[in-house]
Computed example of a mutant assay.
Amino acid sequence: MVDTTGTRVSKSGGNVTGIRSESVIQTALENACRIAQVCEEFRGQDTVVLDVTHITPLFDYFVITTGRSRRQLHAIADQSDDVMDQQGSKRRSTAGYETEWICQDYGDVVLHVFSPAAREQYSLEDLWADAIRVEWSNGKTPESDTSGE
């Protein structure tokens, strides 16, 4: 829900769980789209951006992609770090760098780089099925696209 001051208010069970300005959420969306572009440039497959702002106050966007080799997983993760560092958004943590699922937390955006088997096993898109898919090539959610296209 967006109130009249341009602030997004997240609620769960009638309780306020998070308050975020629209400009902060817009910056997070832009960063998620930048990371998705890195995934595309490094030939990540089936890259999706999920808007989870209405589901959890912990982060705003997931970027999920699949790499075909450990080397490709590392290249996507490392280049995402470089791009986010250039934006002034340092990685807060990383997990799984030596496994088939690299997870990197940039605060408002979380990147998941999977091997094909790990992506199928963990099925984050199904786990977060209430998330809104973002058309990341233009940075819009279906709800924000009022062009009628």
Rank of each mutant, 00 (worst) to 15 (best):
M1Q: 09
D3H: 04
D3I: 00
G6W: 02
R8W: 09
R8E: 14
V9A: 00
V9I: 12
S10E: 14
N15K: 15
G18H: 09
R20L: 11
S21F: 02
S21Y: 05
S23D: 03
V24R: 00
V24F: 02
I25A: 02
L29I: 02
C33N: 12
E40T: 09
E41G: 01
F42T: 03
G44D: 02
T47L: 04
L50E: 06
T53Q: 10
T53P: 03
I55H: 10
L58V: 12
D60W: 12
V63F: 10
T65C: 13
R68K: 12
S69H: 04
R70N: 15
R70D: 13
Q72A: 13
A75H: 12
A75R: 10
A75E: 14
D78F: 12
S80H: 03
D81H: 10
V83K: 10
M84Q: 04
S89L: 09
K90F: 11
K90V: 09
R91C: 07
R92Q: 01
S93L: 02
A95G: 15
E98D: 13
C103W: 12
Q104W: 00
Q104C: 13
Y106M: 09
G107N: 12
G107I: 09
A118M: 09
Y122A: 01
S123G: 13
L124E: 07
E125Y: 10
D126M: 06
D126K: 14
I132K: 02
I132V: 15
I132C: 06
E135V: 04
G139T: 02
K140L: 07
T141L: 01
P142F: 02
P142T: 04
E143T: 06
T146V: 13
